[in-house]
Nucleic acid binder design. Structure first.
Lengths: 137, 137, 137, 137
DNA sequence: GTGGTCTAGACCACC
DNA sequence: GTGGTCTAGACCACG
């Protein structure tokens, strides 16, 4: 498991940890039942206060991504991968829709918005095949 | 000019004002040379602390969107529309790229990302014609 | 608003605060839109560390009982009374069922359980009229 | 004797063991003078840390439910069944009273509390005859 | 050893 | 003034 945090990031440190754990669970890098690094050890590795790590882990328990085994540690909860995956795509859809709606409310018309989206899509993904629309041949 | 603010919004109140003024300028609703509402009047209309409005106006002056006419008020600066428009599309491009990159780093592959983007695009814009690739004339 | 906390209670201090706020909201003592005491003031009044109060308030925001008005304070959220009331009766039902099930699994038979319940019910509520059963006249 | 423990339970593992032993004694499944499984053997059977079993047994000795036979093992103490039974109903009465008092302090009136209690009682016990009041002979 | 809670005090953004 | 975040260090229950 490789975690890293950036101070002076817009997302607070504890939030960065929450995201990274959820991402690791969603991608399968952390499997249900697996023990995650202890609060003290991760705090030492990241040079962060243990309370900050504890706060992240606490939120992950609230979100049912982690389970406590008292005196032993924290393990990835059953059902966590599904939860993390669906949360992830839901968040992405929401943020995407926000950006598009904002673009639409600007001075831009639909064609311009589609043009910008296509440009960025290709910039990030490279020129892999785009999804075809029905009537296209 | 109609402004409105929402408390309990993720963007702070003064930031909402900055955005709305820039949007109004970008769309032509506020033209260069036009006087905007005074700090006190806008604060009263929005039931907001005058300091909050003043802070928004200060930032708009820093961004060269507003000019001070000492003893008179604040006017929309020359060149502000162009600046606002380009800033707007630049911001949108940035946020769009962030979302796409994040989606890509998730468990999603390129095709799934394109699929999600296409879905949201059609949801917001309706089924207007999408931009053609290559074969366009 | 009157809050109080007990150290050396089985429920941690921050949890006692969460319960008391939810109870106050459920009972109408705190109405939606109303500002609650500031973190620092409540901490001073209860002779508790501000972080402890902050933690309680944070959880209440997570539970959508409170809304943040940045720079102003925290207000009771719209819909909070309904949420608090339903949560409260749900919790009570759960705990009640747990106790009854445990009693049943003991050496006690159904009649003894009913007898104990009736005794405690009258001890707490006084001898107000019990609920009638259909066939009763 | 069949014991079982659940990790991620609100009651710690050693407490679950204490309860199960007391329950077994109260119900007669374990009789005075009978030898209980050794720390090591029970720990192995339950896949639990021996310290945990030892801690449970230590508390059971403190509660005079078990007696040490030096060099031999632990036996159920004389008088233990009576103690376990009375402790059990005492605990149940306390918890029941707590729940009812809490319900009463909520927005609920006496009739509503009685209604909820009756519902849960029937849900757990089935519709066996409830205890009669006054007119009983 | 593990996590959970609390205290004390610092700095930040926002109004 | 407000809450939000982070650090530092203490004590507790649990295995």
């Amino acid at each position: 498991m490789f975690f890293q945090v950036q101070h002076s990031h817009d997302l607070p440190v504890y939030g960065q940890l929450v995201r990274q754990v959820k991402f690791a669970v969603a991608s399968g890098a952390l499997a249900p039942g697996e023990l995650i690094p202890s609060v003290r050890e991760l705090a030492r590795r990241l040079a962060v206060n243990p309370n900050t790590v504890a706060r992240a882990y606490r939120q992950l328990q609230d979100d049912q991504v982690l389970d406590a085994l008292p005196g032993t540690g924290l393990q990835v909860a059953r059902g966590a991968p599904r939860r993390c995956r669906s949360e992830r795509t839901k968040l992405i859809r929401e943020r995407l829709r926000q950006v598009i709606e904002e673009a639409r409310k600007s001075q831009l018309d639909g064609a311009e918005v589609r043009q910008i989206v296509a440009t960025e899509l290709n910039a990030v993904l490279g020129n892999e095949q785009p999804p075809r629309r029905k009537s296209e041949k």
